[in-house]
Design a protein around this nucleic acid. Sequence first.
DNA 1: CTAGATGCAAACAGTTTGCGTCACT
DNA 2: AGTGACGCAAACTGTTTGCATCTAG
Lengths: 147, 147
Amino acid sequence: MRDTGNFRALCHRHRLAATHQRQVIYETVLSLPGHPNPEEIYGQVRQRIPSISLATVYKNIRTFLASGLLREVSLHHGSLRLENDQRPHHHLVCVSCRAITDLQEDGVEPVRLRQRLPRGFRVKRIAVDILGICAACSSKGARAKRV
Amino acid sequence: MRDTGNFRALCHRHRLAATHQRQVIYETVLSLPGHPNPEEIYGQVRQRIPSISLATVYKNIRTFLASGLLREVSLHHGSLRLENDQRPHHHLVCVSCRAITDLQEDGVEPVRLRQRLPRGFRVKRIAVDILGICAACSSKGARAKRV
DNA sequence: CTAGATGCAAACAGTTTGCGTCACT
DNA sequence: AGTGACGCAAACTGTTTGCATCTAG
């Protein structure tokens, strides 16, 4: 067994049972390049725990997200949603209830890049998401761990 | 029949047949508050065209997105994807192939708000998506209409 | 010892597709 | 008149759930 220490401590801090499955899933997410999805994680984890089930992978990803051990790329990954305001604008997003509110484009200073982008990338638009807790969720006691 | 003119011209410009279904779907998206999903649009459209099928709504939403008549809230609405880099960072997103590349947080000047946010909204983090066409798609001739 | 985690299978939600018919251009 | 849009049903993908069994604390 490897340096299980870190992960066990991490779980303990978040009041999660430190199971072997969890450790492997967690390590796998950190080790995979890019932005892996559950299926990819499952495929990779299965090389170390062939008997693991996809449901366990899903359940633990949810657990990790809920306790802030992992983060997802976007809070909007559910069903397709359309803009009804066709003018460019930004979004205010509640990380608890995921409500999306529009924020007119000039409510945010134009975003400035400090860094060269990868060669050949042609910028079309810059979208800003302001993530936080909305008033309604705030009063219900919602707290964001890490978003 | 109402001022069909605008919509017919719009369709003509985009080389789309101007059907009654399309017009009602389009008008419905613009008229619904917030960020409607296909199911909500379907429910609303059915009040004007009871015989319409959900498949038609989906097909036409896709058509509108492809020709830039409508825009979606987020390009990341597919399956759940996890961050493997746990440090805060931004994203470079190709609007054609939807590839996501990380951009370290200090590659972007800190975002500054010019406007008061809704009362009680507590900001946790600001996420920036730089939308554009990546080099690979660019060389394949991909063009973004409106993103 | 017990609450909670796992694995399996079945259920579900959202979306897409194939195909025969119908309508816009 | 012909290409493409519509409507229906069936297929598919990604995800969740119920339940019996097992395991970490």
